[in-house]
Simulated assay, not measured.
Amino acid sequence: MRAIEQYIEQGDHQALMVLFHEDPRLTADLSEQHPYNTLLSMSPKLGEEETGNARRSTDVEESTFTGKGPFVIYRVKFVSGETSEFRLHECIAFNIWGFLTKMVKDADMLLGSPGGSA
C-alpha cells in the first residue's frame, strides 16, 4: 500500500483516475479496452475452488513496486521460487490503492478500539 501511495504522491503519472472522476466527458471516447473502462466492465468469474487453488499456487514471498511514468512495475517472487513482473497502468494502480485503503478503513471500523470490561 505504501509503495502505491508513494507512486500516487510522487510519481510521474497523469492522475487519469482523478481527472476522469472530475470530468466524465474525458472518458466518452475511450475504447472499451482502455484500462479505465476494463476496470469498470471486466471482473473475473472464478468459482470458490478456483480461487483457493489460485491462492495456494500464487502466494507471494517478496514484492516490489517501481513507478515508471504512467505505469507501475510490480515484481513478485512466489513461494515456489518463480518470479514474475506485471506492468500496471496508473488507472489500475489508483484503483488498487483505493480498494486497499477502503479495505483497511473498513477493517478498522469492524475491529474498533480495545476497551470495556469484557
Rank of each mutant, 00 (worst) to 15 (best):
F71A: 02
W97D: 08
D108M: 06
D106E: 11
H89T: 05
G11I: 00
V104C: 05
F65P: 01
T66I: 06
I96T: 09
S113T: 03
Q14A: 06
H13E: 09
E9V: 13
G112A: 07
D29W: 11
M1Y: 03
M42G: 05
V79Q: 06
D106P: 00
G98V: 09
I8A: 12
V104G: 00
A15S: 11
L100P: 09
A93Y: 03
S57W: 06
F94W: 04
M17D: 10
L16R: 14
I96V: 14
P114L: 04
T101A: 12
G47H: 04
F71M: 04
G115E: 01
V18M: 11
P114I: 01
T51M: 09
H34R: 05
M1Q: 12
S57F: 10
D106V: 07
V79W: 00
K105D: 14
E62G: 02
G115W: 02
L100D: 14
E50C: 01
M17V: 14
N37P: 12
V79H: 09
A54K: 08
L26Y: 10
L39I: 13
F78V: 04
T64H: 07
S57N: 13
Q6A: 14
I73M: 07
N53S: 09
K77R: 10
S84V: 05
E85I: 12
Y74A: 05
T58Y: 01
L40V: 04
S80L: 14
N37D: 02
E50M: 04
R56M: 13
L39D: 00
G116Y: 01
T27W: 06
G69A: 02
K45M: 03
D108A: 05
T58E: 00
I4R: 03
G52P: 07
H34Q: 12
S57E: 11
E85Q: 12
Y36H: 15
F94Q: 05
M103I: 08
F99E: 12
D59I: 13
E85W: 06
F65H: 11
T27C: 11
V76L: 12
L111Q: 07
N95G: 05
V104P: 00
F94D: 06
I4A: 10
M1G: 12
G98R: 15
D23Q: 11
M42S: 09
Y36V: 10
E90K: 04
D108V: 00
K77G: 01
R25A: 15
W97E: 08
R25N: 14
L26A: 09
P44M: 00
L19F: 06
L30N: 08
P44Y: 04
I8Y: 09
E61R: 10
E5W: 03
T27M: 10
K77F: 01
N95T: 08
R75W: 06
C91T: 11
T51Y: 01
P24I: 03
T64N: 05
H13F: 02
S84A: 14
T58M: 08
T58V: 05
N95V: 00
K105F: 06
E49D: 15
D108Q: 08
V60D: 09
S31D: 15
A28G: 03
